[in-house]
Design a binder for these strands. Structure first.
Lengths: 110, 110
DNA sequence: ACAATACTTCAACTTTTGTTGAAGTATTGA
DNA sequence: TCAATACTTCAACAAAAGTTGAAGTATTGT
């Protein structure tokens, strides 16, 4: 993953509201959720939700599919996994840190 | 890791400038870098760098240590690893996505 | 002591982001 | 067809973030 893509993901996740939306969609699985459901579940006014869904979509973190008059949103898990890959590549610098923490074993290249 | 901490990390990494600084410090390893070195290496005016280093420090992503008249900064790798943990916990929802991509094997709980 | 160095804080400004209500588009059910 | 529903776009504003030059603080070398 290139730096710019990672940057867009971080930017998208840097709002509590957008993070909540993304987590809801991850939890929703392949079914996703239509905008109205998200709006109700998280108590966000439709106008504002639309604004943030646009941001998440532009970052690639969620996909949008029209379904009649509904708009169904789904989390883009592969992009999230790539982002995790980007972070491991940029935090396990000398192959030292992974052994130290023991959390990210198996992910880091060293 | 709680949501708020993760949020602060994402916010800190959502600027290309700060991401560059953090990556430089990761690469620098335990030695870290003093502010002037970062300023020169990345060609950022000291005033502006100071502003962004403050952001990174407040997010906990870097630590600052005074060293005579120098200020030495180091990357906080454990926090980054925790952040990766937060992401895996929030992207590998139903234990489905990990098998699918194969990248994050060994990290996800499922 | 004092000038130089290293860095930060401050003040002013520009830019970007976030929020809301009103209006717009598209689809659906009666 | 027409009103209701679902959602988005628009316009206006409020709030936050980013940038820069000038001034401030602290440490060092002479």
């Amino acid at each position: 993953m290139d730096k710019n893509t990672a940057l867009q993901v971080f930017e998208a996740l840097s709002s509590g509201l957008r993070l909540d939306v993304f987590r809801l969609l991850v939890q929703a699985g392949p079914a996703g959720r239509v905008a109205g459901e998200i709006s109700t579940a998280l108590d966000i006014p439709p106008t504002n939700l639309s604004f943030h869904l646009k941001g998440l979509t532009q970052a690639g973190l969620v996909t949008a599919e029209q379904e009649g008059r509904f708009q169904r949103y789904r989390a883009n898990i592969p992009l999230m996994v790539d982002t995790i890959g980007f972070l491991t590549d940029n935090c396990c610098g000398e192959g030292v840190s992974c052994e130290l923490t023991g959390i990210a074993q198996g992910v880091c290249k060293s």
